[in-house]
């Protein structure tokens, strides 16, 4: 991304009181391109419906909304300032396609009234408790189409540690997200878990990558 664009995105974050300069801007293209490339390799095409969990200010949205057919992008986010910021970022990228984004703290994905072919959770499981990961799968089981795929990134920490997001939101990162943990979920929800699916590039930040097929 050219510097001018990057600093414009930083300005928008400040104007919407959404965040100070961070890795978001520095890794904008690396992450967006990796996400797009990975979902395409998993079989996503423009006709599919995508749920972007923890969609932020539509960083990946700028890629996915452009690529998908009108209205096929659905984003959920917990940080409220991102809702308006997302709209302004799309304007900045001159993207005018329809999309849906909402602020959600309670996994209310059924309210979209849609069934999804793909879901993505980039650096989201990294901020969830073990109970929340379980809840996430519970609700995805209801909203994903049969054979629908969730692509997600995570870190297998040895112990939980906390994050004080923007000095506003206390969060606890989970630990011991090992094979046994995901195999238990696999059994509970009758899904198919796969760590490091074949053909995907390494994640730009070095996080572990996995898929769950519903």
């Amino acid at each position: 991304m050219d510097k001018k664009k990057m600093f414009k995105i930083i300005d928008l974050h400040l104007e919407e009181e959404a965040g100070v300069p961070s890795n978001r801007e520095l890794m904008w293209e690396d992450l967006g391109e990796w996400q797009m490339d990975s979902l395409k390799k998993m079989g996503m095409d423009s006709k599919h419906k995508l749920l972007d969990i923890g969609c932020g200010p539509l960083r990946f949205g700028t890629y996915a909304i452009s690529y998908l057919d009108e209205g096929n992008y659905f984003g959920v986010e917990v940080w409220e300032p991102y809702l308006k910021l997302g709209r302004r970022i799309l304007e900045e990228f001159e993207i005018s396609k329809n999309y849906t984004m909402k602020i959600d703290r309670g996994f209310d994905y059924e309210s979209f009234g849609e069934k999804f072919d793909f879901a993505i959770a980039q650096s989201v499981v990294t901020h969830m408790s073990v109970r929340q990961i379980d809840e996430l799968l519970d609700v995805l089981k209801k909203v994903m189409k049969p054979d629908g795929i969730l692509l997600f990134t995570f870190i297998n920490n040895r112990f939980p540690y906390s994050v004080y997001y923007e000095m506003e939101e206390p969060m606890i990162t989970p630990c011991k997200l090992d094979n046994a943990f995901f195999q238990a979920l696999e059994k509970k929800y009758q899904v198919e878990y796969r760590k490091y699916p074949e053909g995907l590039e390494r994640h730009p930040t070095g996080q572990a990558v996995a898929t769950i097929k519903f």
Binding site: K8, I10, D11, L14, E15, E17, V20, P21
Partner: peptide
């Protein structure tokens, strides 16, 4: 906090 941040980080600040 946001007044200060805009003065420091915004390109117009």
């Amino acid at each position: 906090v946001w007044d200060v941040r805009r003065k420091i980080y915004h390109s117009q600040g």
